[in-house]
């Protein structure tokens, strides 16, 4: 079976990018806090915040890619995503984190911590999915 290529890093992770929260407030990407995601999801009629715990981090199919296995939500559903090593995830209570924080900082000037097994990331699911 073929797997999809890793997702390229989108422009909004660049330091200084303007992010609009659900209540209309504008913040820079580097200034976002855990509460911003929680409060925005509370307002949203379609999306809800879920916790996704990093279970495994393996090498991806290309040199700059990693496959991250998450355990998602109360159901602990196993979900794998393949991303570039510099792709940042938002860790609850910690902030932006990637598998290669040096590269994230180099490419996007976004300060990052190292993403590790056990970290709990902010993720989204659809409301009323179950």
């Amino acid at each position: 079976s073929s797997s999809s290529s890793p997702v390229a890093l989108p422009p909004f992770f660049m330091r200084g990018s303007i992010i609009q929260l659900a209540d209309g407030e504008l913040k820079r990407v580097e200034d976002l806090k855990t509460e911003d995601f929680i409060q925005s999801a509370e307002i949203s009629s379609e999306l809800k915040i879920d916790s996704s715990t990093v279970e495994r981090i393996d090498s991806g199919q290309s040199p700059n890619a990693v496959v991250i296995q998450f355990s998602v939500g109360e159901l602990k559903a196993q979900v794998c995503v393949e991303v570039l090593v510099e792709y940042p995830f938002f860790v609850f209570g910690q902030g932006w984190s990637s598998c290669c924080p040096d590269r994230t900082t180099q490419l996007f000037e976004l300060s990052c911590a190292k993403l590790c097994v056990g970290d709990v990331c902010v993720s989204l699911t659809l409301r009323g999915l179950r």
Partner: peptide, 25 residues
């Protein structure tokens, strides 16, 4: 001369991965 440019504004949810758990019902 630097012309003023409109700054792109991105929605908050675009920063968060959408991880839909597999439903087993």
């Amino acid at each position: 001369n630097v012309e003023p440019r409109s700054v792109p504004v991105f929605p908050w949810h675009s920063l968060v991965p959408f991880l839909a758990p597999t439903q087993s019902d």
